[in-house]
Simulated assay, not measured.
Amino acid sequence: MRFILFLFILSIFSGVLSINTYAQHPEEQQIRALMQQQTAAWNEGDLNGFMQTYWQSDSLMFIGKSGVTYSWQATLDNYKKSYPDTAAMGKLNFNLLEFKPLTPVLYFVVGKWHLQRTAGDLQGHFSLLIRKINGEWKIVADHSS
């Protein structure tokens, strides 16, 4: 009888775990895919591909150690200046920590970034505002440090 009770409790616990695993919002899954797309492009040395996840607008805001940069093109130019080749780029890895829906079309995402490089690893944290524009999720503000 105890064995049956144990199996019953175990099955309930397993069900709760699987519900939580699959309870991830579809929006969060799409944003995770966006971040995977970004990582893949970076790790292939493709800064233009990496930047496809950003809003192509003069209103894009990137905040880094040098201050605020506005516009998609200026952000791309800064990346090209800071990471002129694949050795400088290294291999990127994200650890996504928080997903906060602000509205149905706006998410706040917090995470850690890590670059593994032969010249020395770099790492830090980031916060992103990601907005659904014309049916696609795009980074509209990036604060990386």
Score class of each variant (00 low, 15 high):
residue 1 M to Y: 15
residue 4 I to W: 04
residue 5 L to M: 12
residue 8 F to W: 10
residue 9 I to Y: 12
residue 9 I to W: 10
residue 10 L to S: 12
residue 11 S to M: 15
residue 12 I to G: 03
residue 12 I to S: 09
residue 17 L to A: 15
residue 17 L to H: 01
residue 22 Y to P: 01
residue 24 Q to K: 06
residue 27 E to S: 15
residue 28 E to G: 11
residue 33 A to Q: 14
residue 35 M to A: 13
residue 37 Q to V: 10
residue 37 Q to A: 03
residue 43 N to W: 07
residue 45 G to A: 05
residue 46 D to P: 07
residue 48 N to H: 12
residue 50 F to A: 03
residue 50 F to C: 09
residue 52 Q to C: 09
residue 54 Y to E: 06
residue 54 Y to A: 14
residue 55 W to R: 07
residue 55 W to G: 00
residue 56 Q to Y: 08
residue 56 Q to K: 15
residue 57 S to H: 11
residue 58 D to L: 03
residue 62 F to W: 06
residue 64 G to T: 13
residue 64 G to F: 08
residue 66 S to A: 15
residue 69 T to Q: 02
residue 72 W to H: 13
residue 74 A to C: 08
residue 75 T to I: 11
residue 76 L to I: 07
residue 78 N to W: 07
residue 80 K to E: 09
residue 80 K to V: 06
residue 83 Y to Q: 04
residue 90 G to E: 01
residue 93 N to E: 13
residue 94 F to H: 05
residue 95 N to Q: 08
residue 95 N to S: 13
residue 96 L to K: 01
residue 98 E to C: 03
residue 102 L to T: 00
residue 103 T to G: 11
residue 106 L to F: 05
residue 107 Y to S: 02
residue 108 F to L: 11
residue 112 K to W: 06
residue 115 L to I: 12
residue 115 L to N: 00
residue 116 Q to A: 15
residue 120 G to C: 02
residue 121 D to Y: 03
residue 124 G to R: 05
residue 129 L to G: 04
residue 129 L to I: 09
residue 129 L to N: 10
residue 130 I to K: 06
residue 130 I to F: 00
residue 130 I to R: 06
residue 132 K to D: 00
residue 134 N to G: 05
residue 137 W to Y: 08
residue 138 K to L: 15
residue 138 K to A: 09
residue 138 K to M: 12
residue 142 D to V: 01
